[in-house]
Simulated assay, not measured.
Amino acid sequence: MKEEPVMAISEEEVKRIANLAKFQVEDEEVLHFTNEFGNILNMINELQAVDTTNVNPMFWAVDFKNVMREDKVVETQTRDELFINAKTTSDGFIEVPSIIDTDGGEA
């Protein structure tokens, strides 16, 4: 198998990418990452060269059939039925104890 030439990416670009990613890179690692990024870019170029003209897009690697029920209106519970266990209600809402200190005290 013929070796593909490594796509050029500069050490300055590697340092810039590392900085953007908030990733500390030692000087001796820069050359390693320069080669790795070049290899990744070569793989991307290989993928872009593949003819996908007659290939349908797919969302799953396996055939997938929706197993969910049909979306249709069904009889539901009334508000009174839903609120039956609520301790207190007011104007169609469930009242709950306040959890936010509004008197200006410390949190």
Rank of each mutant, 00 (worst) to 15 (best):
L41G: 05
I94T: 03
E46S: 12
N85K: 06
I40F: 08
M43G: 08
N56L: 08
G105I: 03
I44G: 09
V30S: 11
R69N: 13
F64L: 07
V62E: 10
N56E: 09
F23Y: 13
I9Y: 09
E75C: 05
E46L: 12
E4I: 12
V74R: 09
V96Q: 08
V67A: 15
N56C: 03
V25Y: 00
N39G: 05
E81Y: 02
T78L: 01
F64G: 11
V74S: 08
D103M: 06
E46Q: 14
L82P: 02
K87W: 01
I17Y: 08
N54I: 00
F93A: 05
T76G: 15
I99Q: 01
N45Q: 15
N39R: 13
E81S: 04
E70Q: 12
A8M: 07
E81P: 04
Q48C: 12
M1E: 04
Q24L: 03
T34H: 12
I44Y: 15
Q24G: 04
E70N: 12
E70F: 06
E28K: 15
D91E: 13
E36Q: 06
R69Y: 04
M7V: 14
A61D: 10
E106P: 06
K2H: 03
M43E: 13
M43V: 12
N85M: 02
I94K: 04
N56Q: 12
K87N: 06
F93N: 06
L31D: 14
F59L: 10
G104A: 08
N45L: 09
N35Q: 14
T53C: 02
K2Y: 02
G104S: 12
R69C: 04
E81H: 00
F83S: 03
L20D: 11
V62M: 12
I84M: 03
D27V: 04
N35R: 15
G105S: 14
D80F: 00
V30N: 10
K2D: 00
E36L: 11
V14I: 11
I84W: 00
F23L: 15
V73A: 10
A21S: 06
M68V: 09
E28C: 13
A61C: 04
T88M: 05
V6E: 02
D103G: 07
V73R: 09
G38K: 04
I99C: 01
A21F: 01
P97M: 02
V50R: 15
E12D: 14
V30Y: 09
